[in-house]
Design a protein around this nucleic acid. Structure first.
Lengths: 119, 119
DNA sequence: TTTATTCATTGCAATATTACGATAAATAAA
DNA sequence: TTTATTTATCGTAATATTGCAATGAATAAA
């Protein structure tokens, strides 16, 4: 075992899980934030921003790229990374589906059938 | 190695990463969706909804609980799970921070300094 | 061409995740 | 009390993630 049973879930569930997982590391959050707030998205700048070695950053960039959240363009001997806005908006859309199609029923859940202990 | 360097990132980055990571599996997305759309959040119902064995579901529930996204209340010999709305709104807030404080500069990134190849 | 710069890849060790059978713990039902 | 129901935990196997030194590949600069 050890492999996620992807085929047992919907595409939407898998897609949101994949994108969430890609953001499931503080370094990758930091990378996304850096790319969101700056035009200068040369790989070296990202490496300098993070408290991690260059190969480690490269690996995180690869994961974000695999998830589709970022893309890279060759510029001379450097590589310019940026947010992939198509997937970024898709991610927002998947989250909005979750946030807007349901209404939290705070006081109806977990308490309706409680029998007080000790009575 | 193998352990995330949590102390090198901000609380906000770590919190968003932790919550994102908790949602980084389709089964946990499915659990959250089920809890969002129903009042009946007895653990057994969740197990029946998922294509996974009971111990595996229990483990996913534990991860969501550890991240703070859900909470459980004992009801007789069953346990009623529900969304922890405090953390749920915190998650939404952390995401909104990301979505609203930055503006995608689609056409300014990755193309401004490109020297056409072959010229 | 030679050297420097930039980034990816490889290889490895440590740790974490995913999944489930078996079993334990706790309450409910008979 | 005995049995059933419900959920958590343990143990284990397979796989994935995290991190980095060393190295490779590619372009830039000298």
């Amino acid at each position: 075992m050890g492999a996620t049973k992807t085929d047992q879930f919907t595409n939407r569930q898998n897609e949101l899980a994949t994108l969430s997982k890609a953001l499931g590391h503080p370094a990758r959050i930091a990378i996304i934030e850096f790319l969101l707030k700056t035009d200068a998205c040369i790989c070296g700048d990202i490496v300098n921003q993070l408290p991690l070695a260059q190969p480690t950053v490269s690996q995180h960039l690869k994961e974000l790229k695999t998830a589709g959240l970022i893309k890279g363009t060759i510029e001379g001997n450097a590589i310019c990374y940026c947010i992939n806005d198509t997937i970024w908006y898709k991610y927002r859309g998947l989250l909005n589906f979750l946030f807007e199609n349901y209404e939290l029923k705070n006081n109806k859940c977990c308490y309706k059938n409680i029998k007080p202990k000790g009575l």
